[in-house]
């Protein structure tokens, strides 16, 4: 994949130069960073200042200062309604903040449209998946690619001008589909996939543009436990390639397993930051985050035992049943 990086693709800081794995490198980079909310990072790719978002009288996001380390996997955790999705929306141009500025790779992104944010290399996925249902899986993937001259109205009329690029895109898409175990579904409509498969498709599609940074909003929600392991592998592979990952996740085991750094939000504010082990032992975090589940240890490996896998499967089934029910109500002529 990294063999044919697009022209103009900014290579990540120093990913492959050393023999150390991505994780060790990032751990070393972050070793001397203090564990306090809003702490500066040695090589920040995203820097946000005084970002707030009010909905009526309610403050959904109130982030004083936040930096995201380049090349690292940063987890954004916090209870439901903490403002994680809203913060994602703000950073990626899908929502306008009440106040605040932020930059990506040193360029200010405040007021920049969502499409331009994506083109600048910061690509996101959605908590509620947005698979394009009445397009096939492969067409979904192709849509994620950049620099397709045929996306211009006039060039589109002259296939020789875009067929070669289309070929490249298709090859890249097929490679990703294999990686995400969706190759068997290549020509199926995305609408016929399960909830978990759509999550995978959305992530694979986001990777088509070879982004510098991916922002994943609950990428594991609804994904079959058998697949989560490989999904974790994909996310870690991204780090090896030098891609920065910021993701929201509720499963603490996964957070602990793959993230280099954890940022905790509660009621719109950042209440804690640090490496996973530290943050999860933090009493303030346990108080803010756990609420009702006060007796469970955050990131306890026991969460991955048979019982919880069965529970996860049950949840997945419930999700699918709910989605199917929702689909029947939405069905009908358009």
């Amino acid at each position: 994949m990294s063999a044919d990086l697009p022209r103009g693709h900014v290579p990540a800081a120093v990913p492959h130069a050393t023999t150390a794995s991505g994780r060790d490198r990032v751990t070393a980079d972050l070793a001397h960073v203090a564990h306090t909310p809003g702490v500066p990072k040695p090589d920040a790719i995203v820097v946000a200042d005084q970002v707030t978002r009010h909905f009526g009288g309610m403050t959904a996001v109130d982030v004083g200062h936040l930096e995201v380390q380049r090349g690292a996997i940063t987890a954004l955790i916090g209870p439901n309604g903490a403002g994680k999705t809203t913060l994602f929306n703000l950073l990626t141009g899908f929502d306008k903040p009440s106040t605040g500025t932020w930059s990506f790779e040193g360029r200010s992104l405040s007021g920049v449209s969502a499409a331009r944010v994506a083109r600048s290399g910061m690509v996101r996925t959605f908590q509620l998946t947005k698979a394009l249902s009445r397009m096939t899986v492969i067409e979904n993937m192709r849509l994620g690619a950049t620099r397709q001259p045929g996306e211009n109205l006039f060039t589109a009329l002259v296939p020789p001008l875009w067929k070669a690029r289309e070929q490249e895109i298709t090859e890249q898409a097929e490679e990703l589909l294999v990686r995400f175990k969706l190759d068997a579904k290549r020509d199926d409509y995305a609408g016929s996939l399960s909830g978990g498969q759509r999550k995978l498709l959305e992530m694979a599609r986001a990777l088509m543009s070879k982004p510098t940074m991916v922002m994943l909003d609950e990428p594991m929600a609804g994904v079959n436990p058998a697949l989560t392991q490989s999904l974790l592998g994909h996310i870690q592979a991204l780090r090896e390639e030098g891609t920065t990952v910021l993701f929201v996740e509720h499963d603490m085991h996964m957070v602990r397993h793959i993230s280099d750094w954890v940022v905790v939000m509660a009621e719109g504010k950042i209440v804690a930051e640090g490496p996973p082990e530290d943050v999860m032992a933090d009493q303030a975090v346990i108080d803010a985050y756990l609420g009702a589940h006060h007796d469970t240890d955050l990131g306890d490996d026991a969460l991955l035992d048979d019982g919880s896998i069965e529970q996860l499967e049950a949840e997945e089934q419930a999700n699918q049943a709910a989605a199917a029910a929702a689909a029947t109500t939405e069905e009908g002529p358009r």
């Binding site: 990626t92 899908f94 449209s113 969502a114 499409a115 331009r116 994506a118 083109r119 690509v123 996101r124 996925t125 959605f126 947005k130 698979a131 394009l132 249902s133 009445r134 397009m135 067409e139 849509l143 994620g144 950049t146 996306e151 959305e202 599609r205 986001a206 088509m208 543009s209």
Partner: peptide, 15 residues
């Protein structure tokens, strides 16, 4: 076609 299905998804892909 992507826009017909879901504008926000297409926007998130940089179009």
């Amino acid at each position: 076609k992507g826009i017909r299905e879901d504008e926000d998804a297409v926007r998130s892909l940089g179009k």
